[in-house]
């Protein structure tokens, strides 16, 4: 798409929709910056994999989804789950390992889920969410609903066997799944060229007879339009779609990785393509955003993030015994019936 087209006022998106996308991208970036700050301050433990720079991909994608559609996500999934509807405060509470977190402090940064919004799990194992999403899509077809399932994953996942098995099965059975590859050009520290000889993911998906396209992952509107087409196809029973969204991880693999292997010039080049700055420019050009409103958005987000941190800090630390619950449905960690259930026996 040429630059002129991109700058044209979109007829398929309202001002409110566009501002919501803008706000959500800002919120994700703010969330991750705040998480990084308190991680470095020692308040948040574990691993923290940030998606700063990639916000347009999940926001564009989830803007085309319904609440009852499913997503699977990855270790770098804050943006994905926030886009699908997770709340900042319960996200922070999870990162702080507190009872009000989405997973009651049992999952942490890599495992956030909210089944009430179709978020069936971020996943710490690279590529493992892909067949799970295809399975959710199979379930959709069997139950006869018009939901769709989206699997988010990175370029690194495409070298895993599960990726290939999942694409093959999705294509074979024509289930309503959309594969959204967030190609941020790095798998751990390894550049994309070290993961695949040709580097052409679209051809790779097409080789499984799955309609595929590559979109500018730094353009939220382009991502939205691509996913919307895929959603229409999936809801109409026309099977899976593969979308490669070319994007960039502005930071290292995890907080603490300086990303020294990412060339300076490359980083500079991609920062110029920043999706948030781009949409801000467009919104202003279209008369949808004034400096005053922009400042208000920033202020509101800052307040939401600070409130979220306070919520997390004041949320209750789980009772140590709680570690033994939730292993089995209706059973304790050794598989013995829970007390209230065994009473009638």
């Amino acid at each position: 798409m040429d630059r002129k087209n991109q700058e044209e006022l979109p007829s398929d998106l309202t001002k409110e929709q566009l501002l919501a996308m803008y706000r959500k991208m800002q919120l994700i970036r703010g969330f991750e910056g705040t998480a990084k700050k308190y991680f470095e301050a020692g308040e948040i433990g574990g691993f923290l994999h940030l998606s700063v720079g990639q916000e347009a991909v999940p926001v564009g994608t989830c803007s085309a989804l319904r609440k009852d559609d499913y997503i699977t996500s990855t270790h770098r999934g804050h943006g994905d789950v926030l886009s699908k509807g997770c709340e900042v405060k319960r996200m922070f509470a999870e990162l702080y390992g507190r009872t009000d977190g989405y997973c009651k402090g049992k999952g942490g940064s890599m495992h956030i889920a909210d089944f009430s919004q179709g978020i069936i799990g971020a996943n710490g194992i690279v590529s493992s969410g892909i067949p799970i999403a295809v399975g959710a899509a199979l379930s959709i077809r069997m139950r006869g609903t018009d939901q769709v399932a989206v699997s988010f994953f990175g370029d690194g996942a495409t070298a895993e066997g599960s990726f290939h098995e999942a694409l093959n099965l999705a294509s074979l059975w024509q289930v309503p799944v959309i594969f959204v590859c967030q190609n941020n050009l790095y798998a751990l520290s390894q550049p994309w060229s070290h993961s695949a000889r040709d580097g052409n993911l679209v051809e790779r998906a097409q080789s499984y007879h799955i309609p595929a396209e590559s979109v500018d992952g730094m353009d939220v509107i382009a991502v939205y339009r691509s996913v919307e087409k895929a959603v229409d196809r999936a809801r109409s029973g026309d099977g899976p779609t593969f979308i490669e969204a070319r994007t960039y991880r502005f930071m290292g693999h995890y907080v603490g990785d300086p990303g020294a292997y990412m060339p300076e010039e490359e980083q500079e080049e991609w920062r110029k393509k920043d999706a948030i700055a781009k949409l801000r420019r467009q919104l202003k050009m279209w008369g949808y955003l004034t400096d005053k409103v922009d400042e208000q958005i920033a202020t509101d987000i800052e307040a939401e993030l600070q409130d979220g941190i306070e919520y997390a800090r004041s949320s209750v630390i789980p009772e140590p015994r709680e570690a033994l619950n939730d292993v089995y449905v209706h059973f304790d960690y050794l598989g013995r019936p829970l007390k209230e259930e065994s009473n009638h026996a």
Binding site: I120, P131, I132, G135
Partner: peptide
């Protein structure tokens, strides 16, 4: 097909979503 990881992965996804 002969794809144990894929089959079980799909089954996990289906099981979590009502099947």
């Amino acid at each position: 097909p002969i794809a144990e990881a894929g089959i079980v992965g799909l089954a996990v996804g289906a099981a979590m979503t009502g099947m």
